[in-house]
Each structure stands twice: as C-alpha cells, then as structure tokens.
Simulated assay, not measured.
Amino acid sequence: MFVLSELAIILIVVIAVLAAKKLPELARSAGKPARILKAEARAMKEMKQEQGSAGEQPAPA
C-alpha cells in the first residue's frame, strides 16, 4: 500500500507533467504584478528623495 508521502510525490509529478504547458504563462502572470510593485516602490522612493532635498535648500537672499 502507498504511504501518504509517496502519493504526494506521485501527485506532484502528475500535476507537473499535465501543467507543463501552462507553467511559463503562470510564471509571467505572477511576475508582472511584482514588476509593477517594484516600479511603484522605486517611484515613491524617488519622490520622497526629491521632496526631502527640496526642503533642505536654503532660502534665496
């Protein structure tokens, strides 16, 4: 009789074989939101730096 761990391994292999065609598409769709989040975080960091440097400039005499 199969042990639970053996069934889990067989199930993972079967899913990997059947889903092999969809894996690249799933990876792209998962990576797209991560790139957007990274770009937004970078833009907010740059905006904070610009605001901080604008506040440090001395007033014109």
Rank of each mutant, 00 (worst) to 15 (best):
A16K: 00
K21Y: 12
R35H: 12
L4I: 13
S5D: 07
I10G: 00
A43S: 04
V17M: 07
I9L: 02
P58A: 12
V17E: 04
E25W: 12
S29M: 14
Q51A: 02
A20G: 05
P33T: 01
L23N: 06
I15L: 15
L18I: 14
A54H: 04
A16H: 03
L18Q: 09
M44F: 11
P33G: 05
A30Y: 04
K32Y: 11
P33D: 01
L11G: 09
A34R: 12
F2V: 07
A20Q: 07
R28C: 01
M1A: 08
M47S: 13
G31F: 00
S53Y: 07
Q51E: 08
K32P: 01
A39F: 07
P33M: 01
V17D: 02
G52C: 00
S53N: 13
F2H: 09
K22T: 13
K21Q: 12
I36M: 00
Q49L: 15
P24E: 04
A19S: 00
L37Q: 09
K21P: 10
K38D: 09
Q51G: 04
A41H: 00
K21W: 12
A43W: 05
A27H: 02
A34D: 08
M44G: 03
A61P: 15
A20D: 05
A59R: 14
E25K: 15
M44Y: 10
A30V: 10
K21I: 11
K38Y: 01
S29K: 15
A43H: 08
S5H: 07
A34Y: 08
A41S: 05
A19C: 04
R35M: 15
E50F: 04
L26N: 07
M44T: 11
L11Y: 02
A54K: 14
K21G: 10
A30Q: 01
A41E: 06
L18V: 15
S5Y: 05
S53K: 14
E25S: 14
A16Q: 07
L23C: 02
K38H: 03
P58T: 11
V3M: 08
G52I: 01
R42M: 08
R42C: 07
L23E: 04
R42H: 05
A27M: 00
P60N: 09
I12G: 09
K38T: 14
S5M: 06
S5C: 03
M1G: 13
E6A: 02
I36K: 06
